[in-house]
């Protein structure tokens, strides 16, 4: 086997799709191994800071980990965002609670654990308003994923004839 033939055989073995994944993983493993040997710096001044973990829970706040101040529909809550000048109604979503959540907060001390599943609160402020484009994109990615998934199922995994069979 000549040198050029060996070289082209090497190139052929590399161009298989599974070698591509292996080569990429090798690159990532090297980068991660380098990263493990260093310390990391943290910038203390962050956007949307939150209090120390468990601080609100210990003080008995009914909206425990997600209380950011404000009164629903009266006073906006605190949201330290990047561009306040582009967000005229900043903070209102943070302070908003649905009537049901308000009732729950009065009668239960653990309302904060369910607040993520009701409209209103700091997470909804970031997800829908200040960084809304991220969430719209995320749902579009899910949309494309489902389109590919259902198309492959209908055309390949289960053929059209199987799909239309009588049940």
């Amino acid at each position: 086997m000549s040198a050029s033939e060996g070289f082209s055989r090497l190139l052929l073995s590399v161009r298989r799709p599974e070698s591509m994944v292996s080569a990429y993983c090798l690159l990532l493993a090297v980068i991660a191994a380098v990263g493990l040997t260093h310390g990391y710096h943290y910038h203390r001044k962050q956007l949307y800071p939150r209090p120390e973990p468990q601080l609100q829970v210990k003080s008995g706040d009914p909206l425990a980990p997600y209380d950011r101040g404000g009164i629903p529909l009266r006073r906006p809550g605190i949201a330290v965002s990047q561009y306040p000048q582009f967000e005229p109604s900043r903070g209102w979503v943070t302070s908003y609670l649905t009537p049901f959540t308000r009732w729950l907060a009065r009668h239960s001390r653990h309302c904060g654990t369910t607040i993520v599943s009701h409209p209103g609160g700091i997470l909804d402020e970031i997800l829908y308003y200040t960084r809304g484009l991220d969430t719209v994109l995320e749902s579009s990615i899910m949309f494309v994923g489902f389109v590919i998934f259902s198309w492959v199922v209908r055309m390949k995994t289960v053929t059209e004839r199987e799909m239309g069979r009588r049940e």
């Binding site: 994944v21 993983c25 990532l28 910038h43 001044k45 990047q82």
Partner: peptide, 30 residues
Amino acid sequence: AFHYGLMCLIASLPLFGGAALILASTGTLS
């Protein structure tokens, strides 16, 4: 397509991890 999908899945670690480290070290993503 399967191996390209695997690449995309694996690449989300460096993509999101890189964005997270940039956020942690500078305090902004903009």
